[in-house]
Structures are given as structure tokens and as C-alpha cells.
């Protein structure tokens, strides 16, 4: 079953939220790479042209300049597509941002496979792995628009490098207005004792739907929105392993190096229990986003089946 929810484009939420922060945070500057309408920072560009710099599609330079601005006390927000913002300037992110731990905010859109028809070169399925491998970066995958707004507000006040992963498509809203995001603290969205579903980003809504369906079969699934992958909320993961005895991870990312790998590492080190991973197992081609998600099992049904497998593996 699928719950009816409103949808909203988190990248638009990003652009609009940033705009509201300009007066409160005079040190924020925004850097773009010729994708400013798509990333919604054109709103900032048009209103604060003196605090906006376009560099064209030259991502190495964008990150290098952002590092210099951060070293001079600015709060640079860098925005482009996820495939271009992470892989292309990876060495600059490593040497100029991560190693000296500079205050650069890399907010990328068009992440995952929800870019659909643009095909595999546009599908960012390695970005979480890349960014979680940089020691000083915080890495956040908001689930919906309300969470995105809170993440962006936190970005301006937290110190240090931050990567935020947003999709192109509008995604279901799973939070109410009163929701309060806490960096590094997983959000238990539903309690349960038979299995834990740990999801992030676009898989949070399918995880909630899967839990609802499982409930109809007498299985109580805990659902955790692990929005922050780095630093990961180890206590929440260990508690899930300890208290429910089986775990499913669900992410719109390659199976290696993302949420599943991080959770499995924590579980293996602390409280070994079965872990099933709902994730991509390789590249996928062009097609409508919902078809690609279904083809790769990134659905409520896929999560539900994984939960049943995990429970079956319990000792």
C-alpha cells in the first residue's frame, strides 16, 4: 500500500530557504557553475549579485575558490549537480576542504537516479560513498522539503565541511511543520520491535509504507530516518540491532559505500545481526524515474520483501 502524500521539490526549498538567510548571515556567499536555475540559487543570484559568483562548468576552480573564501571567513555555499560537484572536484574537496576542515557547504541537486531519462552519466549513485570517505565532511540526505529547510538553516551555523544531497524530482513530504532536524541524530519515525528499517532520502517514504504493510501482517517495524550519514548516529543503529535483531537499509545509491555499508559496519563492530540492503547494484539506464526505481527494487514492496528476508535470517 502507498500512503497519499503531498510532494515538493527539495531543491526549490533549498533556494528559497537560502534567500531567507541572507540578512541574518552576511558572510554567506553563493558559488554556481552554470546550473543556477536548476539548483535554484538563481533566486540568490538575482537578489544578491554582489554575493554570488558564477564560474561556469569549472568545478575544480569553484571548490578551490570556495576554500579560499572560507579561509577568509566567508560561508560559501557551492551548488551544482551531484555528479559534477562531488566526483569532478574530488581532489580539491580532499586537499583544500576536508584536510584543513574549511567551512565550505556543498549543496548538490539532481542526486541519485531520479534524474531518470538523462541516463547513467547523470545518475549520481556514488556520491555518498565519495563524500563519506572524506574524514571531516558531514554528509546529509534530507528526506523531504521540511527537512531540507532545517538542514540548510543548520548549515549556516555549523562549522566545517558539509555535503547535502538533494534530488531533482519532487519527493513526498513525510514531516510535519513542527519537525526539528538534529545533525547526526537519527530520527525514529515509527517504533517497532521485530525489525528496523533504516532509510535515507527518497527511500524514507517507501520505508514508512513498507512498515505499514508489515503491520498488517503482524510485524512491527521500527523506521529510522538516518538523514545524517556522517557522522552516523551509532547509538541509534546499535539500539536498533539490539532491540529488533534484524536490519534493513534503504537508499537510492550504489550498495557499496553508502548507507548500507555504514550501517553494516556499525552493526558488525558492535551488535552483529542480519542486515539486508535495498540499494542499487550497478548503473541503470535512461527511463522515467518511477520506472527506474521500480526496476531496481527501490520501492515499498522492495523494502518489505527485504524486511521479511532479514527476519527469516534471525537466529
Amino acid at each position: 500500500m502507498t500512503t497519499n502524500r503531498q510532494s515538493a521539490a527539495t531543491r526549490e526549498t533549498y533556494g528559497r530557504t537560502l534567500l531567507t538567510m541572507a540578512e541574518e548571515h552576511p558572510d554567506i556567499v553563493v558559488l554556481g557553475g552554470d546550473l543556477n536555475v536548476s539548483t535554484f540559487v538563481h533566486l540568490w543570484r538575482d537578489q544578491y549579485p554582489d554575493r554570488f559568483f558564477d564560474f561556469g562548468p569549472a568545478e575544480q576552480n569553484i571548490v578551490g575558490v570556495a576554500a579560499g573564501l572560507a579561509a577568509a571567513g566567508k560561508i560559501p555555499f557551492v551548488s551544482t549537480f551531484s555528479v559534477f560537484g562531488t566526483g569532478r572536484p574530488y581532489d580539491q574537496l580532499r586537499v583544500l576542504v576536508s584536510q584543513p576542515s574549511l567551512n565550505v557547504k556543498l549543496i548538490c541537486t539532481h542526486a541519485g537516479i531520479l534524474t531518470g531519462e538523462d541516463g547513467m552519466s547523470a545518475h549520481s549513485i556514488e556520491d555518498l560513498s565519495l563524500m563519506c570517505a572524506l574524514p571531516s565532511f558531514s554528509v546529509v540526505t534530507p528526506a523531504d522539503a521540511p527537512e531540507t529547510e532545517q538542514v540548510i538553516r543548520s548549515a549556516a551555523t555549523m562549522q566545517g565541511p558539509l555535503y547535502v544531497r538533494l534530488p531533482r524530482a519532487a519527493t513526498p513530504v513525510v514531516h510535519t511543520d513542527g519537525y526539528r532536524f538534529r545533525m547526526g541524530e537519527g530520527e525514529v519515525m515509527r517504533e517497532g520491535s521485530d525489525v528496523s528499517i533504516i532509510a535515507c532520502g527518497s527511500l524514507v517514504a517507501p520505508a514508512l509504507d513498507a512498515a505499514e504493510s508489515l503491520s498488517g501482517q503482524g510485524i512491527q517495524a521500527r523506521v529510522i530516518n538516518l538523514h545524517t550519514l556522517a557522522p552516523a548516529d551509532e547509538p541509534a543503529i546499535i539500539a536498533a540491532a539490539h532491540e529488533t535483531g534484524a536490519i534493513v537499509t534503504a537508499e537510492e545509491h550504489y550498495v557499496h559505500g553508502g548507507l548500507g555499508s555504514i550501517v553494516a559496519g556499525v552493526v558488525a563492530r558492535n551488535q552483529p545481526v542480519p542486515v539486508e540492503m535495498v540499494a542499487l547494484h550497478g548503473y541503470t539506464g535512461s527511463g522515467p524515474a518511477n520506472e527506474l526505481m521500480a526496476k531496481n527494487g527501490l520501492t515499498a514492496h522492495g523494502v518489505e520483501q527485504a524486511a521479511l528476508r532479514a527476519i527469516k535470517r534471525k537466529r
Partner: peptide, 15 residues
Amino acid sequence: MGLSFALGHALAARL
């Protein structure tokens, strides 16, 4: 990388 980084400082001076 140095010229990009230096440009960041140069733009910050203007700001």
C-alpha cells in the same frame, strides 16, 4: 589549486 584558492581570498577582500 593555489590560484583558485588565492582568488577566493581576493574576492573576500572585495566583499
